[in-house]
Design a binder for these strands. Structure first.
Length: 615
DNA sequence: ATAGGGTTAG
């Protein structure tokens, strides 16, 4: 019917285009060889491009085909650079670039070549090569090509060079929607979300991609509330909402611990039949797991048709964070059966799983296997996990020994993990060492001081406590204010320690008094040790009852119905007393309380906590 | 015959 619109295609081109998988393309290749057709450079170029672009993760075959050709076309070589720029081996792009350069002017790179090459550099995070490619493309006269320009903005953003982004963008005489969006995204990626917003507001036209870029920018900078409110504005303006928008929305909910809004987002996705991509599924898993609903996270996980390394790693990390170390390791076995190769992030999840399950030997084996089996060099994070693994198991000497034998300089994370273990296992001597090492590395690390002071307080060494206090004062180190958030009725309420500004504060105070009373009636004695400073007992009891999570829990008890779990997200680790008190509250008020602290989850129920006393 | 902007795990 619409044949009048179709353009006559070369029959061989049609044949080549009919194949997408390697198997199909190999059959087509045989056919073409038999007919001697591949001597025609244009057709060979088209074939190579088709093979490479349809199979960016398996480029051996396209390489072989290209090798059979004496004089590959620029089109074929550009296609190879393009395919490699998106592959797991982007560095090979340069081989084809060199082929072009060494062809004795038979070929010369064009705007396509440089556009793909710039994207390769972005992918590689090539801080040295990126600017060199930029120089080369200027020499060849392509710096004013709009595709190349937006590519450069993208590349410099990936390299974290915001000033170069500004320079390139500033030289675009009349930036269009696409380059403006690239710049919005670049500024946000480099942390200047304020400027990104200014640009966004100044854009004469904004399509749904521009909105997505801005919302993602807020989400990536940790400005989750702004991300959500901009999303609501987007809805009101009637802009098209896609699965890409929802990934950022879910990410914002994850960081806020806003389970209700996350559930709403999930329902929205289903109601509007948005495409359940791997990325979106992974964002859902992460949201449910980090909002404390690990069962739902796994339900989504098992429901997915396709899973990539992000999906597996998120699910494993979620299980570990919620205390299901054994389940995390089971999942790793299945991941291997599925032939998904783990990466360095996966090993962070694995080691955390071993740590919460107390599986020291197994953790050590996984750590060893990183380099030996997978060719992944352990990084600082992994060393930190290992110290935590030994420390949590109470094997403090081995933890110290591990630190002392690290091939790279131990970072604050390693000493911090040791210090934490020292507090849990009350090893003052090692704790003092770990704390001093931590301070040596970061003299403003408040955790180093607070933990040490708490250790002194644990052993009633009040001189030690005041000594730490003096040092902190002298060095201008301030304790990070504790902050807990709780979502009620789709709204996120924030409580800072000691802050009385909440409109319902009087009611909260009454609830806190009731909690204290019922705890005392149940025979619970408030432990005054964890307070940082040596203050009067009376005040201590009061100060303790004002830790932000207790205020949030009191608020939760007032505002939510019986039987509904109370979910809190805290910016610091839970203190010992709050942990004990929350256990008791969960029993006395018969309420499940789920606290996500800086490190992991605590599911309090019936007087017990899922962390079993170690966190 | 090829190209540009938005999304996930530590």
């Amino acid at each position: 019917m619409n044949s009048f619109r179709s353009v006559a295609k070369h029959p061989i081109i049609s044949l080549i285009d009919s194949g997408t998988t390697l198997k199909e393309l190999k059959q087509i290749h045989t056919q073409l060889l038999l007919n001697g057709i591949l001597n025609e450079p244009h057709l060979l170029g088209h074939f190579v491009a088709n093979v490479a672009l349809n199979n960016p993760n398996n480029l051996d075959y396209s390489n072989q085909v290209l090798d059979q050709c004496d004089n590959p076309t620029l089109f074929a070589l550009n296609s190879m650079i393009r395919a490699h720029s998106k592959s797991s081996t982007p560095q090979h792009s340069f081989r084809f670039y060199n082929t072009i350069l060494q062809s004795n002017h038979y070929l010369s790179p064009d705007n396509y070549t440089f556009n793909f090459l710039v994207r390769t550099c972005a992918q590689l995070l090539a801080r040295g090569t990126g600017p060199a490619v930029h120089c080369a493309l200027i020499k060849h006269g392509f710096e004013h090509d709009p595709h190349v320009q937006s590519g450069l903005v993208f590349m410099y953003a990936e390299l974290g060079c915001l000033s170069s982004c500004h320079k390139v963008f500033g030289e675009i005489p009349d930036p269009d929607l696409v380059s403006q969006t690239a710049m919005v995204s670049a500024c946000a990626k480099c942390g200047d979300v304020g400027f990104a917003r200014e640009l966004f507001d100044l854009m004469p036209k904004r399509d749904h991609i521009a909105w997505n870029a801005m919302i993602a920018g807020y989400a990536q900078c940790g400005q989750s509330r702004e991300a959500l409110s901009l999303f609501h504005l987007m809805q009101m303006e009637g802009v098209r909402i896609s699965e890409v928008s929802m990934v950022s929305v879910l990410s914002a909910c994850t960081h806020l611990g806003a389970l209700d809004q996350g559930r709403w987002a999930h329902a929205y996705i289903e109601r509007n039949k948005l495409r359940m991509t791997v990325t979106l599924g992974t964002a859902l898993i992460d949201m449910y797991a980090k909002c404390g609903n690990v069962n739902k996270a796994m339900e989504v996980f098992w429901g997915m048709k396709e899973r990539n390394v992000y999906t597996w790693t998120s699910a494993m990390g979620g299980l570990a964070m919620n205390g299901f170390g054994d389940k995390c390791l089971e999942l790793f076995s299945l991941m291997k059966q599925d032939d998904i190769p783990p990466n360095e992030v996966t090993f962070v999840s694995i080691l955390r799983g071993c740590s919460v399950a107390g599986l020291v030997e197994e953790g050590r084996e996984h750590f060893e296997s990183m380099g030996k089996v997978y060719g992944i060099e352990p990084k600082l994070e992994h060393y930190g996990c290992m110290v935590d693994l030994y420390g949590r198991a109470g094997r403090l000497d081995e933890a110290l020994n591990f630190i002392n034998n690290m091939p790279i300089k131990p970072h604050s994370g390693a000493w911090g993990a040791l210090l934490h273990a020292c507090r849990m296992y009350k090893n003052m001597e090692l704790g003092e060492l770990a704390s001093s090492k931590l301070v040596e590395l970061e003299d403003k690390n408040h955790g180093a001081y607070v933990l040490l002071s708490n250790m002194y307080a644990d052993s009633k060494n009040w001189d030690g406590v005041s000594c730490v206090r003096e040092t902190m004062k002298a060095r201008g180190v301030r304790k990070q204010p504790g902050c807990s958030v709780i979502e009620v009725g789709g709204e996120v309420h924030e409580f800072f320690a000691g802050d009385k500004s909440h409109p319902m504060y009087d009611e909260i105070e009454m609830k806190l008094a009731e909690i204290s009373k019922r705890l005392r009636q149940a025979g619970y004695v408030v432990d005054t040790n964890p307070v940082l400073f040596d203050i009067e007992e009376e005040e201590k009891e009061d100060a303790l009852s004002k830790h932000s999570e207790k205020v949030a829990i009191a608020f939760g008890l007032i505002t939510s119905k019986e039987g509904v779990p109370i979910r809190i997200v805290k910016n610091l680790r839970v203190c010992w007393d709050c942990h004990e008190v929350t256990k008791k509250i969960s029993e006395i008020f018969n309420r499940e309380i789920i606290v996500r602290d800086r490190n992991r989850f605590h599911h309090f129920k019936g007087g017990d906590c899922s962390c079993k006393g170690y966190w």
